[in-house]
């Protein structure tokens, strides 16, 4: 009959209207500033640098190898390795800048990092009126503790810890017979199942 489809439609909307008062599946709104959805463990939004221990800058796992700078698709990472007084590299970043006004949270820096030094953050409430200072994160802003990493991604952190412990055990085993050489650990990105030896840092692009 003409109009039966219209009436069916009206019935559906009426049903939804009534149900919105008592059925949580029909009132799906999360009232954002007061309520927050629980972010899934895998959620990623901008990278941060992991540090061990208490010292934010000294404890950074980052060795300024510049792999992430080279691999970053939008080229939003900028690293200058630190040098001591004699001009030798100290395997620490002097400058580690990350421009989150460009970053697309693709997680490729995390995947390529052989040292598990850069991980993905979950903080997204960063709207700001200031483009230049607020959206360029320096290593001081980026450094977050290992414990923070554990709270964000417990599963991934556990894997990373296991890999790091294994690497440490191996370096120690190696260091005992041989002279203590600065052999970098052989960890792996958690996503890649195969452990790969770290490649030498490619020349700056």
């Amino acid at each position: 009959m003409l109009g039966s489809g219209l009436i069916q439609g009206l019935a559906v909307t009426a049903k939804n209207f009534v149900k919105s008062f008592h059925d949580p599946a029909r009132l799906v709104t999360v009232e954002y500033p007061e309520q927050k959805t629980k972010l899934p463990e895998n959620y990623r939004n901008f990278p941060f640098l992991v540090y061990d221990g208490d010292q934010a800058i000294d404890g950074l796992r980052c060795v300024a190898c510049k792999i992430c700078e080279a691999e970053c698709p939008p080229q939003c990472i900028y690293i200058i390795p630190d040098r001591d007084e004699k001009g030798r590299p100290t395997k620490k970043p002097k400058v580690f800048d990350l421009d989150i006004s460009v970053c697309m949270s693709c997680q490729i820096c995390v995947e390529v990092c052989p040292f598990d030094a850069i991980k993905m953050d979950q903080h997204f409430e960063i709207a700001t009126a200031e483009r230049f200072n607020a959206l360029l994160l320096h290593r001081e802003d980026l450094a977050k503790s290992d414990a923070y990493f554990h709270t964000l991604h417990p599963t991934e952190a556990a894997q990373v810890d296991a890999v790091l412990a294994e690497a440490k055990r191996r370096t120690e085993a190696k260091a005992r017979p041989a002279a203590p050489a600065a052999v970098p650990a052989t960890p792996t990105a958690p996503a890649a199942p195969a452990a790969k030896p770290p490649e030498p840092p490619p020349p700056a692009v």
Partner: peptide
């Protein structure tokens, strides 16, 4: 373009 992380 002003780019805070300028590559070479």
């Amino acid at each position: 373009e002003w780019e805070p992380t300028p590559h070479d």
